[in-house]
Amino acid sequence: MADTIRKHRKELVRMIEEFTTDHDINPAKSGHISITIRRNGAHRTVFAPLTPSDHRSMLNVRTKIRRAYTEMAAA
């Protein structure tokens, strides 16, 4: 189980670093993962599942990260 979580975290880091290297990944109280990304002094938090149930959940997280990063450019 620990290997799966470690592998999931590496995948999240690769996904986030497509957009920014200025980020934090922390466990959330709800059993999820809290991802905070920063751009130009602004920050957004996106939540990801601790263990994804299927490949679509990771695609959804990537979309949330991309959208949050893009919104910070407009703000």
Results as ranks from 00 to 15, higher is better:
Ala74Cys: 11
Thr45Leu: 04
Ala75Gly: 06
Thr63Glu: 12
Thr51Glu: 13
Pro52Trp: 08
His55Met: 06
Pro49Met: 09
Ala68Arg: 00
Lys64Gln: 15
Val46Phe: 00
Thr51Phe: 11
Leu50Ser: 10
Ile65Gln: 10
Asn60Ile: 04
Thr45His: 01
Arg62Asp: 10
Lys64His: 13
Leu50Glu: 08
Arg67Cys: 01
Arg66Lys: 15
Asp54Tyr: 13
Thr70Phe: 01
His55Gly: 05
Leu59Pro: 03
His55Ala: 11
Val46Lys: 02
Leu50His: 11
Glu71Lys: 09
Asn60Ser: 08
Thr70Leu: 13
Thr63Ile: 00
Leu59Asn: 14
Asp54Ala: 11
Lys64Ser: 13
Ser57Gln: 14
Asp54Val: 09
Pro52Arg: 08
Glu71Ala: 10
Met72Tyr: 00
Asp54Trp: 05
Pro52Gly: 07
Met72Ser: 03
Ile65His: 06
Ala68Lys: 02
Asp54Arg: 04
His55Asp: 08
Asp54Thr: 08
Thr51Arg: 11
Lys64Gly: 04
Phe47Lys: 13
Ala73Val: 01
His55Cys: 01
Arg44Glu: 14
Asp54Gln: 07
Leu50Met: 13
Phe47Gly: 04
Arg66Met: 08
Arg67Ile: 03
Ile65Asp: 07
Ala74Asn: 15
Ala48Glu: 01
Ala75Met: 09
Glu71Thr: 04
Lys64Ala: 12
Arg62Val: 01
Ala73Leu: 00
Met58Glu: 08
Pro52Cys: 03
Leu59Ser: 09
Val61Asn: 05
Thr51Ser: 10
Ala48Leu: 01
Phe47Tyr: 15
Lys64Glu: 15
